[in-house]
Design a protein around this nucleic acid. Structure first.
Length: 275
DNA sequence: CTGGTCACCTGGAAGC
DNA sequence: TGCTTCCAGGTGACCA
């Protein structure tokens, strides 16, 4: 599921718990991608001060009852995770409902069938630690300029698709939004990143920003697993121009959309209007 | 450093 | 119907 838009949709849905104090927590599966901390012992009595997003991570800042920083959860949804908000008491847990965080009258519940997600706990500055310290710039950051983006693309010999996925030049594009952004910008995913002209890089950055923003507004993309915090599906899949449309006609030029494999992962593109 | 491979898990769809 | 195989939105460890 979850690329940047889905994580942002999730964050906005979970905002309802900010300012509230944890009254209980349950960890039913002690291991996702990494061991899950003992939240039932750590969190009760702490107040959720803020909930931020960086790339595809959620950053949960907790304070103690004196208002002093008490620790931070850095969580990731992996391939199949989603959070759901329930009024307390939440219904009986279903399959793959691994973690509950109870904030009095609301319960936040993590479901993750494939368990590729993660929940880490740190008492340090999470932005100074892995994994957050290694991330490239946020797509909506004003500090990310077309020129800076182009310069980052010059530093690698990888294809533009691999480079976007790696998140070194800009974070947030996973497999779906990579294909969509490159299609919108008219650039083949197999092009080497360093071959993009300044004009092409600027166009690509513009399209990445537009598509991610539209996907957030649509509630994200639901292919299989993802659901919004209110249980609804995301609708951006309806707006995908090329992703998952191998053999269909390109909406711009009518040629057939093809699927290629790069580093073991599918890319979809139109050989007619992407150069 | 960089690129390539594989592992982590479950489940849905397609093929036979 | 039932079994097998392939594929899936993401990371990160390991190896050449």
């Amino acid at each position: 599921m979850p690329e940047l838009p889905e994580v942002e949709v999730t964050r906005r849905g979970l905002i309802c718990a900010v300012g509230k104090t944890v009254t209980a927590a349950a960890v039913r599966i002690p291991r996702l991608r990494d061991p899950v901390p003992d939240f039932a012992g750590l969190l009760p009595g702490l107040r959720l001060a803020s909930l931020e997003r960086r790339a595809k991570y959620l950053i949960w800042h907790f304070e103690d009852q004196q208002g002093m920083p008490a620790g931070t959860i850095v969580s990731h949804l992996g391939m199949s995770g989603f959070w759901r908000v329930w009024p307390s008491p939440a219904p009986a847990p279903r399959k793959h409902d691994h973690v509950d965080l109870v904030f009095g009258d609301v319960t936040l519940r993590l479901n993750d069938a494939r368990r590729f997600g993660s929940m880490r706990w740190t008492t340090g500055d999470p932005y100074a630690e892995k994994p957050l310290c290694d991330l490239g710039p946020e797509p909506f950051s004003e500090a990310l300029t077309p020129l800076g983006f182009w310069q980052a693309l010059q530093k690698t010999r990888r294809s533009i698709k691999e480079t976007l996925l790696a998140g070194s030049a800009v974070v947030g594009c996973g497999n779906i939004y990579c294909s969509e952004s490159l299609f919108a910008a008219g650039i083949l995913p197999t092009r080497s990143a360093s071959s993009l002209t300044k004009k092409e890089a600027a166009r690509l950055l513009t399209e990445i920003r537009r598509i991610l923003a539209e996907a957030i507004a649509s509630g994200g993309t639901t292919l299989r697993d993802f659901h919004g915090p209110d249980g609804s599906d995301g609708y951006f899949a309806l707006d995908c121009q090329v992703y998952g449309r191998e053999g269909e006609a390109c909406p711009k030029c009518g040629r057939l959309i093809v699927r290629i494999v790069q580093n073991g992962r599918s890319s979809f593109c139109c050989p007619g209007c992407q150069k």
